[in-house]
């Protein structure tokens, strides 16, 4: 479980995250929704430590991530997998080497064991015969799948997905959603997903956090969202329906 307690962040005096507290649960798809510029991506970057918060606490289980040293944070980071909006696959490495990268860096696995794990992860994301291809040879959907495969290579306890469907066609988007949901349940991962995609939210969301201009406007289960009574949230949802 991840818990945020009163986190604040500002850039050059402009408040981007204003006193946000929230909880993210294991085995659940925890969605963070909000308009562009609402602070979703900054919040995710604060949660993984790419940006330091000005104030507040972030707990991974019982560990206070904010007040840990760089070396102590590394131990928590090894339990984190992340799927980036642009996938962030290493251009100079093949698909196999991209997925094998964290295994070679952090485990004592033999070359055979690494290859076995890579093939298992590729199979899990329904990709075959792509080991020797490079990211530039892959389609958008395939890159996302390789990104997921790399993120789960070390069996993470926490999975962060930043706009997992951006730039994908509707059919591929649903496949990626299904995959993330399956992995979340199968490995009991605490999954945090930033998105604008309401279809994705209604298909696979469990716990929802709505952010408006850096403040948490609403938090609750998906079943309660339509009866939330929050006019901004309802307006945001209405604008997404077609």
């Amino acid at each position: 479980m991840i818990q945020l307690k009163n986190i604040k962040k500002s850039f050059n005096g402009k408040i981007v995250l204003d006193d946000i507290s929230a909880s993210f649960y294991p085995g659940k798809a925890n969605f963070v929704i909000g308009a562009s510029g609402s602070g979703k991506s900054v919040m995710m970057k604060c949660m993984v430590g790419l940006i330091d918060v000005d104030q507040g606490e972030i707990f991974y289980g019982q560990d206070d991530f904010v007040n840990k040293s760089y070396e102590e944070r590394k131990l928590i980071r090894k339990e984190i997998g992340m799927l980036f909006q642009g996938t962030a696959l290493f251009d100079s490495l093949s698909v196999e080497d991209n997925i094998a990268f964290p295994l070679r860096m952090f485990t004592q696995m033999t070359a055979e064991e690494v290859l076995e794990r890579v093939n298992f992860c590729l199979k899990r994301v329904d990709l075959a015969n792509v080991n020797k291809l490079y990211p530039s040879n892959l389609s958008g959907g395939m890159k996302k799948r390789v990104g997921i495969a790399r993120a789960i290579a070390l069996n993470p306890k926490y999975l962060f997905c930043d706009e997992p469907n951006s730039g994908l066609d509707p059919l591929t988007s649903r496949l990626i959603d299904k995959l993330i949901k399956e992995i979340t349940i199968e490995y009991n991962i605490t999954t945090v997903i930033n998105t604008h995609d309401m279809k994705s939210l209604f298909d696979m969301g469990d716990n929802i956090i709505y952010i408006y201009q850096g403040k948490k406007e609403w938090e609750g289960e998906k079943s309660l969202i339509r009866s939330s009574g929050n006019s901004r949230l309802l307006e945001f949802m209405k604008a997404s329906e077609f």
């Binding site: 430590g49 992340m82 290493f90 251009d91």
Partner: peptide, 17 residues
Amino acid sequence: GTMKVTEQIDALEIMGI
């Protein structure tokens, strides 16, 4: 620079490298 703007450096940091 390309690694930075395509978030590849962020990916390394998140892995704890």
